[in-house]
């Protein structure tokens, strides 16, 4: 019997790191986006900062999604 324990371990570690990272980045983005209108009224700068932060987070997630599509579609390899 030849069970690839190392490969299984790798899958667990990589999936944990990447999966948790994406959700954390997206959650930070959602948080920034949701506090944005409140800050925008009298502290416009804070509002802009929140919007930019949210944008960066969503951009990072979009890039990871693109990498995911690249992995799924064999023609891109």
């Amino acid at each position: 019997m030849n069970i690839k324990w190392t490969a299984l371990g790798e899958v667990a570690v990589v999936a944990f790191a990447v999966g948790v990272a994406i959700v954390v980045i997206f959650a930070v983005g959602v948080l920034a986006w949701s506090v944005r209108p409140a800050a925008g009224a009298d502290r416009r700068q804070a509002g802009t900062l929140a919007t930019v932060a949210a944008g960066l987070c969503f951009l990072a997630c979009a890039l990871i999604v693109c990498y995911g599509i690249y992995l799924i579609v064999p023609q891109l390899h």
């Binding site: 790798e10 990589v14 999936a15 959700v23 992995l71």
Partner: peptide, 15 residues
């Protein structure tokens, strides 16, 4: 998201 990462990781790391 977790399911997607686990599926992609497993199909690309050979388990």
């Amino acid at each position: 998201t977790s399911a997607t990462t686990v599926i992609l990781a497993s199909s690309h790391l050979g388990f």
